[in-house]
């Protein structure tokens, strides 16, 4: 057998892979006809190349890994609208809930589970009859929507939010996935825990009234409880556990990863349901985001000093201009409209 040089081997491979240029192809064909040793090498390599087997089919595994990846991405950055991985029969999304068993044992009525690092796993469903597709409701900017779930639970979805309901909803658990803000009036059913999943916090209840605000762009996650008792776990750290009483709310800071519990006025938290725009000592950056979600216009803060101010107030069903006018009457801000966005400047007073 006559050895050839590296260059010619690579040319033959390129030809077999369909990567060779027209000139190279002509050159190879000529050599094959004229040189028996080259022809022999060409045949050997062609034979080796034709022995290539297709890669094993990894379709099922690929979909599993992709489903897990999509959940991870959704946790990192909730989207305006959900589009999940292609549907794979026999796969069910299940949340791994840290300390769930213990939590259920402790809190007979209501349990809120929270974890800054929430791990979702995709488990193969043994009986293989549960699809992964989720029914979805989505609200645009300035929209609100009331949803009635199959178990009788009522959900009011605030603007720029999404709620997905698992197809397995009600089988043994009632699981929904929330991005943004919603008010829940959960039909009591101790046999079937109701779980609201958000990016960092999962709230588990058996039946209650509560509000969850978990906009990805906001700096805090707020769980406000109206009735019952709740337990909140954060960062998977039992030492940080908090028990909430009615009328109390937990504010979890994504930045410091700490939570504080404060009293709240029900109207401040649930006012949005009655079309009341409420600022409850919101920082101006958060207030600006709220305004832009509420009215569907980008709101920009021009003055750095504003970033440190807080805002308190309720605006009942008012147009944006009126809201800004009222705020400017009590504080030192001015605003203007530029390129279809609102620019606010001023300072704290």
């Amino acid at each position: 057998m006559a050895y050839m040089d590296e260059h010619h081997y690579l040319l033959i491979i390129a030809y077999l892979e369909g990567r060779s240029t027209e000139t190279e192809t002509q050159y190879l064909l000529q050599k094959v006809q004229e040189e028996p040793t080259f022809s022999e090498a060409f045949e050997d390599i062609a034979e080796i190349w034709s022995a290539r087997k297709p890669l094993p089919d990894k379709g099922g595994e690929a979909h599993d890994v992709l489903a897990g990846l999509n959940l991870k991405i959704d946790e990192l950055e909730p989207r305006e609208s959900f589009t999940h991985a292609p549907e794979t029969p026999g796969i069910k999304r299940t949340a791994t809930i840290v300390n769930l068993r213990r939590a259920i044992a402790i809190a007979a009525a209501l349990v809120i589970m929270a974890g800054a690092f929430w791990v979702y796993k995709v488990n193969r469903n043994s009986n293989g009859n549960t699809g992964a597709s989720l029914a979805e409701t989505h609200t645009g900017v300035g929209q609100k929507r009331k949803i009635k779930l199959p178990d009788g639970t009522e959900v009011m979805l605030n603007s720029s939010s999404s709620l997905q309901v698992a197809t397995a909803f009600g089988n043994d658990k009632r699981e929904v996935y929330l991005q943004g803000e919603a008010w829940f009036d959960v039909k009591r059913d101790p046999q079937k825990p109701f779980i609201v999943h958000t990016a960092q916090v999962a709230t588990q209840v058996l039946g209650t009234h509560f509000n969850v605000s978990a906009y990805q762009t906001d700096s805090n996650i707020v769980v406000s409880l109206v009735q019952g008792k709740v337990q909140v776990d954060m960062d998977n750290d039992p030492a940080k556990r908090v028990i909430l009483d009615p009328g109390k709310q937990m504010t979890y800071s994504k930045k410091s990863k700490t939570a504080k519990v404060t009293e709240f006025v029900t109207d401040d938290i649930t006012g949005w349901k009655e079309n009341k725009l409420v600022f409850d000592y919101d920082s101006w950056p958060d207030a600006a985001k709220k305004l832009s979600r509420w009215y569907g216009v980008p709101v920009e803060l021009k003055n750095g000093e504003l970033l440190r101010c807080k805002l308190k107030g309720t605006f009942d069903n008012m147009p944006l201009a009126k809201v800004l006018q009222q705020i400017s009457m009590v504080s030192d801000i001015s605003w203007k409209t530029e390129d279809k966005k609102v620019v606010i400047s001023g300072k704290c007073n």
């Binding site: 890669l55 595994e61 690929a62 890994v65 992709l66 991405i73 589009t83 292609p86």
Partner: peptide, 18 residues
Amino acid sequence: DREAFNALFLKYYALLID
């Protein structure tokens, strides 16, 4: 486009795992 992202993943998964 998340659908394109999903398609890309599925296109390359078998190769990359190999």
